[in-house]
Write a protein that binds this DNA or RNA. Sequence first.
DNA 1: TGACAAAACGCAGATATCTTCCTATTCTTT
DNA 2: AAAGAATAGGAAGATATCTGCGTTTTGTCA
Lengths: 120, 120
Amino acid sequence: MRRKKGTLLPLEVSIMQCGIDLAVRGAPHFHGFMIAKKIKDREDAKLLTAHGTLYKALDRMQKSGFLESQWEDPLVAAQQRRPRRRLYHVTAAGEAALVRAHEAAPQATSAQPNPGLATP
Amino acid sequence: MRRKKGTLLPLEVSIMQCGIDLAVRGAPHFHGFMIAKKIKDREDAKLLTAHGTLYKALDRMQKSGFLESQWEDPLVAAQQRRPRRRLYHVTAAGEAALVRAHEAAPQATSAQPNPGLATP
DNA sequence: TGACAAAACGCAGATATCTTCCTATTCTTT
DNA sequence: AAAGAATAGGAAGATATCTGCGTTTTGTCA
């Protein structure tokens, strides 16, 4: 489905939110598999059945400039005896796009008042 | 199924033969996945349904001293954009065990007269 | 010979990423 | 409004290795 440039699809919004949430909690970056698990729990699932969908979305968002990524140091992955991860982080453009998505469709986007950054 | 020390099970014989075959053709080592594919073709399949069985066999044979292994250089795997392999090679003890298996049960073991090393 | 215990087998799934192929949806243009 | 183009979604599988759990097989001992 074509779409207007700068728009975020529901899955993409979820990814962004997860990413920003993790950043707020001190995680400098995230990887696909991690997001997959997070989304599976918190979202009503629905989105994201096969992992291909997620990785394609990550690619897309990177091309749009909403995310940036780098491969994990192979030595780190090796030490932990697991496959290498691709580490993403949300860019400023990504955050802006998320805000725009908020404004455009405030129904499902961020029902909670930002846990971890509550202004007293 | 318990067994006498130094004996090789059918799957193990297959692994050994694949390994030696590859060595003869110039491949210094092999890895689990590669063997899995080889066995799936040449053997009537039967052996090796899930991969767990194969990796367990490789472990066993390593502990018995028939194989030795080392992890692939993580940088190489990284460059080729795939998971890291564990590289095995057949030891002298392994070859000896294979010969013993030949003598003990010459039915299925090496039907072909060693393709690639035919003495003219 | 019969029973026990050890070991092997098979199934399933975790860990990660990515590709291909087909279907469904949406945007844009006429 | 209808048609066409582009893109997203979904299923499946490739690439690798390894763990756990329950079942089956087999050697050995009584």
